[in-house]
């Protein structure tokens, strides 16, 4: 590409009527440019920007309001959750307390029952013991009369004389028994192997054994 510009071209450009050098401002245009930007600035700054900025501000406020509401709702939900949790905890504690109470009550009932059973058992033991004692007594009384009858029969046979007289007979038996109890009759005197002579110490021993048995018996049953 080749440009040829003679000096006269430039001169003609510069001096042409109205058409100046492109870099020399046309004054009316410069002034009108100022008017243009001035008018537009006035319109924009008074009628356009305030409206838009107001809308932006409102939008921002609306969004922030929405966010505030959401935050509030969240706080409420949090509070409700805490309340529920507190209630749940309370209920759990209460249940625990009730359970504990029931356990304690159950334990006390068991203890009471045991005590009662113990008392009952000891009462039964006691009455059994007493009954045994009574029966023994009865047996011993019966035995005494039978032993008397037997020994008189035996004695009358041996001696050969009838000792039918009851008073005599009774007096003799009583005397014999008294002797037997007081220990006047010794087995050595009657003869070895006589079962009657060993009766006294045996009965003493037996009595002692019975006492022992009584104490032992309760203890054993307790255990």
């Amino acid at each position: 590409m080749q440009f040829t510009a003679t000096p006269s071209t430039v001169v003609s450009l510069a001096t042409a009527e109205g058409a100046k050098m492109p870099l020399i401002p046309h004054i009316p245009e410069l002034i009108f440019g100022l008017v243009m930007i001035g008018v537009l600035y006035w319109v924009v700054s008074t009628k356009v920007v305030p409206n838009l900025e107001k809308a932006y501000e409102e939008r921002r406020a609306a969004i922030e309001g929405g966010m505030e509401q959401a935050e509030e709702a969240q706080a409420q939900a949090q509070a409700a959750l805490q309340q529920y949790e507190a209630q749940l905890h309370e209920a759990r504690t209460e249940a625990n307390a009730i359970r504990e109470e029931a356990r304690a009550e159950g334990a006390s009932i068991v203890t009471e029952m045991r005590e009662r059973a113990q008392a009952e058992s000891s009462r039964i033991t006691e009455s059994a013991k007493r009954q045994i004692e009574a029966e023994r007594q009865q047996a011993s009384v019966q035995l005494r009369s039978e032993v008397g009858a037997l020994s008189t029969t035996l004695a009358s046979r041996i001696v050969g004389e009838s000792l039918e007289d009851e008073v005599r007979q009774k007096g003799m038996i009583d005397r014999f028994l008294a002797e037997l109890e007081s220990g006047a009759v010794r087995p050595e005197k009657v003869g070895a192997g006589a079962p009657v002579t060993t009766d006294a110490p045996r009965s003493e021993k037996a009595e002692q054994g019975q006492l022992d048995l009584g104490t032992d018996g309760t203890a054993g049953r307790d255990a």
Binding site: E17, G18, H26, I27, P28, E29, F32, G33, M36, V39, L40, V43, V44, K47, V48
Partner: peptide, 26 residues
């Protein structure tokens, strides 16, 4: 007009642009 104080076509269009922008934007 002519010469140094002529009103040019660009001035008219510039004026139109200001009016147009003002009206539309408002």
């Amino acid at each position: 007009g002519e010469g140094n104080w002529a009103i040019t076509e660009q001035m008219v269009w510039g004026g139109v642009s200001v009016v147009l922008l003002s009206v539309v934007m408002v």
